[in-house]
Nucleic acid binder design. Structure first.
Length: 437
DNA sequence: AGGTGTTTCTG
DNA sequence: AGAAACACC
């Protein structure tokens, strides 16, 4: 018997897989979920729980069509040779999704596969990272021209794939880790069916004028599904009519996700390093003061209601409204003078939608050191932002109940004075510019 | 995807 | 007085 190996590295989707369906025509398919220990080890309990639920939901999907699913742990580069040794005699194809981690890493994976033919099932993007380039073949560093070129490039319609037509083989996923105890945490339902239901229930609702209002909770909540691949952006894009302003704005948000995947693909080191290193020389806090500030920020006890509401939502749901993400990030970097990597790490640990490309580059955007970054002097005022985007205070009251009900607890005094810290940040920035960093 | 202080316009 | 425009960070 010959089997195709379907290797899900980061994108777990089953639908929109024409290459998989073509491979399946040559023989049964052995799905392999790779749980990267690096990903697993840096994830908090909420993120782990959601990932496991996603895997289990997909496992259940597969069991309807075949004997089961193989799950292995290990770095892709090391697990693939072991797997190939196990089934080399049977393998016809290996299907692999390539994330936005750069051509060097992809090349290592291909090398590990040796002579086993590789079926590229495509990326979890409408346009694969690396495909959208300027006329002279260079990668875009600014969103607006990228967006135009991305739309011009276009994407195919989603595949009319039917997992029932795939002949799945493999062993049950008994070696899935146990799910951490997350009782009391409000997690979305995981899996493809839930993702599709989420999308069809949400699409067509107002977006353009309410997407910045965390109190209205009007966003799609599709980010965990896009992250783990339980829905494909092409499925979403096919349902959008760009003549509708709501749809056009939403499509632009999908384009931001593709833009940052593209940036990480071309500059893999930007996941850790400053894309523009000029701002590395700013006076960021270290040592005990760093720990103290990070602690107050992560626990939602900074004394700024909109910041604390967001940080508490993150711990409670593994998710935070996008407008609030920008506010808390700006506050950490520009009011608390903490280097952006600390905040990015906390987000990746807890967000159920945490994606390396989007997360790191949005943090770099806020810090002013990324591609197409906000100018460094753009500093959010947490009070003004709260008034503007949570005008009735509904969001803040939900997550910071002690503001209106003192029996719940005592709300802390502001950890720093925003006006003072804003002035200090601008002064440090000017010093840096004068002395050339 | 901003904020702030100042000037200018408007009713 | 308040909105809108502007310059600068």
């Amino acid at each position: 018997m010959s089997a195709s190996i379907l290797w899900f590295r980061r994108d777990l989707r089953l639908r929109d897989h024409p290459a998989l369906l073509a491979a399946a025509a040559d023989g049964p398919v052995l799905p392999l979920f790779v749980l990267d220990p690096a990903l697993w080890g840096t994830s908090g309990d909420v993120r782990r729980a959601f990932l496991l639920r996603t895997l289990r939901a997909l496992d259940a999907d597969l069991r309807r069509f075949g004997p089961g699913l193989v799950v292995r742990s290990g770095r892709p580069e090391s697990v693939v040779p072991a797997l190939v040794a196990e089934v080399a005699a049977q393998a016809v194809h290996v299907s692999a999704d390539f994330g936005p981690y750069g051509a060097a890493r992809d090349a290592r994976v291909e090398e590990a596969l040796g002579d086993v033919p590789l079926v590229r099932t495509g990326s979890p993007y409408a346009v694969a990272p690396g495909r959208v380039l300027t006329n002279d073949g260079r990668p875009y560093q600014v969103f607006t021209p990228f967006h135009r070129a991305w739309v011009d490039h276009g994407w195919r319609a989603p595949a009319e794939s039917d997992p029932a037509s795939v002949d799945w083989v493999g062993a049950p996923s008994e070696d899935l880790p146990a799910e951490p105890d997350v009782s009391g945490v409000d997690l979305p339902e995981a899996g493809e069916a839930a993702a599709l239901a989420r999308w069809t229930a949400w699409r067509g609702t107002p977006y353009d004028d309410v997407r910045d209002r965390p109190d209205l909770d009007a966003t799609s909540r599709l980010s965990p599904d896009l992250r783990w691949g339980t829905i494909h952006p092409r499925t979403v894009l096919a349902d959008l009519d760009a003549r509708n302003p709501h749809a056009a704005t939403f499509r632009k948000e999908l384009a931001w996700r593709e833009f940052y995947a593209h940036v990480l693909h071309h500059w893999p080191s930007s996941a850790r390093e400053y894309f523009r290193p000029e701002l590395r020389g700013l006076p960021y806090v270290t040592g005990a003061e760093l720990e103290h500030r990070l602690d107050a920020w992560t626990q939602g006890r900074t004394g700024y209601p909109i910041v604390d509401a967001g940080m508490r939502q993150l711990l409670a749901e593994g998710w935070m409204h996008n407008r609030v993400r920008m506010i808390v990030a700006s506050f950490l970097v520009k009011d608390l003078h903490v280097e952006w990597q600390h905040g990015a790490r906390h987000f990746m640990r807890h967000l159920v939608d945490g994606d390396l490309a989007s997360n790191q580059h949005n943090w770099q955007w806020v810090a002013g050191c990324g591609t197409d970054a906000a100018p460094y002097f753009r500093i959010f005022n947490p009070t003004t932002q709260g008034k503007k985007f949570d005008p009735d205070g509904g969001y803040v009251r939900r997550w910071v109940p002690e503001l209106t009900d003192p029996s719940v607890g005592t709300y802390p005094e502001p950890i720093v004075d925003h006006a003072e810290q804003r002035a200090a940040t601008l002064e440090a920035y000017q010093l840096l510019r004068r002395h050339g960093g």
